[in-house]
Design a protein around this nucleic acid. Structure first.
Length: 283
DNA sequence: GCCCAGGAGTGTG
DNA sequence: CACACTCATGGG
């Protein structure tokens, strides 16, 4: 099932390779492959559009991809808004094609529970192991992320054997403390209350709750703070301190699109170390 | 071998 | 509210 989409601006390498999502991989020909719902999807840039194909294929594949890539985000408006801050304004235009993605709420919740105190390559491996072991097979060598009912069958010991470490019990408990109706209800919940409810789940603190709010529930005002963001805030703005303090600073500074600012800062800080160049600084 | 990682939970000052 | 400590483990 082939399709073509017009989403602009969009840089697939930036968007899918910057560590928001853990189940997309870049193939030898430069295309990207991942799973959306029960579809194995491949997408690639072709001129000004994005072309792709999906197996087993369905009539809704285009909308699945468009929703995943947040095609309706008005990047110009977002950057105009964020550009009120001169420091962000200086570097964000170089990252115009970096979009926030919209992940499945359940997959996002479990993925970011797994993401605590691990680096991105390892997180990808853990998520992939969980999918391979418990997810439904949808193509040769490709498994969907397991729905709650399937993942709930896994014991803590079995999950630990996949290399999840202390995260195994959190995943196991999360399968029991939340269900699909609750997730659907949370989609309608205002951000601050959603955040509070997420933090009540096992293995979910402020950082994970903010990531799940942003990538899973699409709340662009959310501003997750990890060690990279801490470094960026200290280096570029001279602020440091507790999570609540830094979060207050960011929300006040970046407003309703703080999530995009966070992603620009995150990507810059993470790549700067190897490239030695900061998009937000003239030095 | 060493350092670190998209932290959370728990206990203490 | 702010710290300090522990938790398991693999990637660079």
């Amino acid at each position: 099932m082939r399709f073509e989409l017009d989403i602009s601006p969009l840089d697939l390498d930036l968007t899918l390779g910057c560590g928001q999502t853990f189940r997309w991989s870049c193939l030898a020909d430069g295309s990207w492959a991942g799973v959306l719902g029960n579809q194995f999807v491949k997408i690639k840039r072709k001129g000004s559009t994005i072309e792709g194909d999906a197996t087993p294929g369905g009539s809704d594949v285009e909308s699945l991809v468009a929703n995943f890539l947040r095609a309706k985000d008005d990047i110009s408006r977002i950057q105009l808004e964020l550009g009120k801050d001169p420091i962000i304004a200086l570097g964000m235009r170089k990252m115009r094609g970096l979009r926030i993605v919209k992940l499945d709420e359940w997959e996002c919740l479990i993925s970011y529970i797994l993401a605590t105190y691990a680096n991105i390559p390892r997180i990808m491996k853990m998520v992939d192991s969980v999918a391979s072991e418990y997810g439904r097979k949808i193509a040769p060598g490709v498994h969907a992320f397991p729905e709650r009912r399937l993942l709930a069958k896994a014991s803590v010991g079995e999950l630990a054997k996949l290399g999840l470490g202390y995260r195994a019990k959190y995943v196991h408990l999360a399968c029991r403390e939340i269900d699909e109706p609750a997730l659907a209800e949370m989609m309608k919940t205002p951000y601050e209350r959603l955040r509070t409810e997420l933090i009540e789940l096992p293995g979910v603190g402020e950082k994970v709750a903010d990531c799940v709010s942003l990538f899973g529930f699409g709340r662009l005002e959310s501003f997750p703070i990890d060690v990279w963001i801490q470094r960026a805030l200290l280096r570029l703005y001279g602020v440091k301190g507790s999570y609540p303090k830094l979060r207050h600073f960011a929300i006040q500074k970046f407003g309703c699109f703080a999530g995009y600012a966070q992603e620009y800062l995150f990507h810059n800080e993470r790549t700067m170390a190897s490239k030695g160049a900061c998009a937000f600084s003239n030095q």
